[in-house]
Simulated assay, not measured.
Amino acid sequence: MTEPLEPVTEKDRRDELAANLEAVERRIADACAAAGRDRSEVTLIVVTKTYPASDVRLLADLGVRNVAENRDQEAAAKAAECSDLPLVWHFVGQLQTNKVRSVTDYADVVHSVDRGRLVTALSSAAQRQGRELDCLLQVALDKEADEGAGRGGVAPDAVLELAEQVRAAPRLRLAGLMTVAPLAGPYAGRPREAFERLMEISRSLRSLEPTANMVSAGMSSDLEDAVAAGATHVRVGSAVLGVRPRLR
């Protein structure tokens, strides 16, 4: 007969998160050293999707300042519950226009801007709320090989056109680029090369908008490749929070 699991106390969970954070920080520091970069050049964003607000509070107590969510319904409730904390909220999921008003209420940075209609919706919502919103263009590197391939994101050859739309949109700030290592196309299974390609696109973007220097790339499994390529932000979930049952 299986013994029932002991409940996890707040102290146990805090200790677990602290140990995981230390391990991730060590990975980032080692990757920076290997790439000849200063550790301060890379910001850790902890992806808290499916984990409770209590974990966000523990992370904040451990010094985390950047957290990310990918589903508005969960994110809105969690951000409201943690509104007293000194956090920067990143929205990293695919964003439908009917969720824009809610997302702009709590998100400081949207990583998944990939079409003109979304730019218009974000700008309108930000104007209504009197907020400035940082926007990253999500680049779909698999679309270099097949315009119809892959998940969300703008094709590399359409980045500058979309960037111009963001630059012209009131209350939006073009902050940089984001990508996820592709599962198909020429960069499948080659995250280092994918992130290096993103850096090439970033250099082109900065020729248009010099302050758009944020490059969000790399997750738990490939953050070293992202740091080596030059990413400024890495998005890490399971390596910090561990593998736990989903909330829903």
Rank of each mutant, 00 (worst) to 15 (best):
G36C: 09
V243S: 14
G148M: 01
Y51I: 01
H90D: 10
L223Y: 05
E69H: 02
G130F: 07
R244W: 04
E200M: 03
V166Y: 02
R27Q: 12
R173E: 08
R39Q: 13
L133W: 08
D30P: 02
D72R: 10
V67L: 13
L183R: 11
L62K: 14
A75K: 05
S102D: 06
G237M: 07
P156L: 02
D15N: 13
V88Y: 00
V110H: 03
D105W: 00
A79P: 00
A79T: 01
R57I: 03
M178C: 04
D134Y: 00
D72G: 02
S216A: 07
P7M: 10
L122C: 05
V88E: 14
S123K: 11
G152C: 02
V236S: 02
G130N: 09
R244L: 07
G150R: 09
A145K: 04
A126R: 06
P156Y: 03
G237Y: 04
A239W: 08
E209A: 15
P86T: 09
D105P: 00
G242K: 07
N20M: 03
E41S: 15
N66S: 12
R65S: 13
A212R: 10
M219F: 00
G189M: 04
A228C: 03
E25F: 01
V8K: 12
D15F: 00
A145V: 01
S202L: 05
A31R: 14
V88L: 05
F195A: 08
A18N: 12
S123I: 10
E164W: 00
D108G: 14
M219Q: 12
R235C: 06
D142G: 06
R115G: 08
T2A: 05
S220P: 04
T48G: 01
A19S: 15
E25C: 06
D134P: 00
